[in-house]
Amino acid sequence: MSNTTSIVLVDDHSLVRDGIKALLESESDLEVIGEGDDGLEALQLVEDKNPEILIIDIRMPNMTGIEAVNELKKRKSSVKCIILSMHDSEEYILKSVNAGAKGYLLKDTGKVEFIKAIHTVREGGTYYSGDISNVLVNNLLKPSKEIVEQVSKPKGGDNPFDLTNKELQILELVLSGLTNKQISEKLQNSKRTVETHRFNLMRKMDVKNLIDLSKKAQKYNLV
């Protein structure tokens, strides 16, 4: 095994890629040998470059990161995949693990943890940071069928807004009158994480206040 870890980096935001590449290549034992901006390109890069590690974002055009990781698993590729995302939702985490990802890191992960994750995955381990580990631990004792249903089946009604399970959970808690601080304590997430989910669900539902949020949630039977 070479002393240098070969990495393919895939993210549809070039500035993000540039920043991550600079971070990685500041380490003498890491080398980015290919870059792409969607899941389909990731598959081609893995085939052409044969990297040890694929670091890939979730939400991208043409093919998502999770779909790409799942396809690589079907192809019995030897590449080890790390999902890099701004989302710490339970749904994304469990889908990533089921697809075959060996790691899941948030984009605000610090350099030391990022490098540690790569080394851990390269050596055959798995690495999930922060709240992500808590999600996995909380699901260890659930029957596998229940986990699959939780991942694939949305709560509530028609859900035309493409809300994640975590956003639906926070929607229910917001409409029950809990503050962000109370929700963060109940879900054992940081207040900043709750605020991000709350902002995202209100943006997706195109509402500006709690009254409109409540009306739209009831209209579509989301709670």
Results as ranks from 00 to 15, higher is better:
D108C: 05
L201V: 08
E91V: 09
M202W: 00
E172V: 07
I183D: 08
R198Q: 03
S89I: 06
Q169D: 13
S77W: 06
D131I: 08
Q169Y: 01
D108K: 06
T109Y: 09
Q169K: 14
G103E: 08
Q150S: 13
P160T: 03
N209E: 06
I82N: 00
T164C: 08
A101R: 09
M86I: 03
Q182V: 03
K116D: 13
F114W: 02
E90D: 12
E90V: 03
G177W: 00
K153P: 07
T120I: 00
T196F: 15
R122N: 14
I170F: 02
I93D: 03
M86L: 04
E123D: 15
I170R: 11
D88E: 04
A101M: 07
L210I: 05
I118S: 06
L136Q: 10
I115C: 10
T120G: 02
S176A: 09
I93W: 00
K208C: 09
L171K: 05
D88T: 10
D206M: 02
G124W: 12
V148Y: 15
T120S: 12
D88M: 02
D206Q: 15
N200S: 03
T179D: 01
S184H: 04
E149H: 14
K181S: 13
E113A: 13
Y92P: 09
A99M: 09
L140C: 02
G130V: 07
K186Q: 10
S129W: 11
E90M: 02
S133G: 15
P154H: 10
S77M: 11
K204T: 00
S184Y: 01
T196E: 13
Y104P: 11
L140Q: 06
I118K: 11
V148K: 15
L168K: 12
Q188G: 02
E185F: 07
T164P: 15
V194P: 13
A117C: 09
S144I: 05
T109D: 09
C81E: 06
R192N: 15
N139E: 03
S78K: 15
L210S: 00
N180V: 04
G100W: 01
N98G: 07
T120A: 14
R203M: 03
L84H: 11
V79H: 12
Y127V: 05
S152C: 06
T120R: 15
V121A: 08
E123C: 10
K111T: 13
V151P: 13
Y127H: 12
V135Q: 04
K107C: 10
F199A: 07
K107S: 07
H119N: 13
H119P: 10
S144M: 12
T164E: 05
Y92I: 00
S184R: 07
T179E: 05
I183T: 07
Q150R: 13
G125P: 13
Y104C: 02
E172G: 14
L187I: 01
K181N: 09
E123G: 14
V112F: 13
S85M: 02
P154Y: 04
E123L: 10
L173H: 11
L141V: 01
A117F: 03
L94T: 01
D206H: 14
H87S: 06
K95E: 12
I118P: 13
